[in-house]
């Protein structure tokens, strides 16, 4: 097993409350996470590391800074472009298109 992973609650020394699931679609694929997670958190919890391409050379981009300053993790949420996945909480039913798919 490689890459990012969400620590299962039963193994977690922090003992987080069960907030219930949240489901979003990413480029048509349904992904689930936990309520209260950021969109980046849901993507990475599902093992996704990148979801955007750099504009000139098409290099893969995902989370880099995690605190909203690098703008690497941008995606389109419910038709609104350029949303930072690391900053925005996932909302139930959010329809997400990666800017990899939308040919920016």
């Amino acid at each position: 097993m490689r890459g990012p992973r969400r620590l299962p609650a039963e193994q977690d020394p922090v003992r987080p409350k069960d907030s219930g699931p949240v489901t979003i679609t990413v480029d048509g694929e349904s992904l689930s996470g936990l309520q209260g997670q950021s969109i980046a958190g849901v993507l990475m919890g599902n093992g996704r590391q990148s979801w955007r391409r750099s504009p000139r050379t098409g290099r893969p981009r995902g989370v880099f800074c995690g605190i909203g300053v690098c703008f690497d993790c941008l995606l389109t949420v419910n038709d609104i472009p350029d949303v930072r996945a690391c900053q925005r909480r996932a909302g139930e039913g959010d329809v997400i298109t990666t800017q990899e798919a939308s040919d920016v």
């Binding site: 990012p4 969400r6 620590l7 990475m44 919890g45 989370v63 800074c65 995690g66």
Partner: peptide, 23 residues
């Protein structure tokens, strides 16, 4: 700039705020 390279702050934010380990 390869995915999988993070700032240390990203690792912290994801651990503390999401309970996600970057790797």
């Amino acid at each position: 700039d390869l995915p999988g390279v993070y700032t240390a702050g990203a690792a912290q934010a994801l651990a503390k705020g999401e309970r996600v380990a970057v790797g």
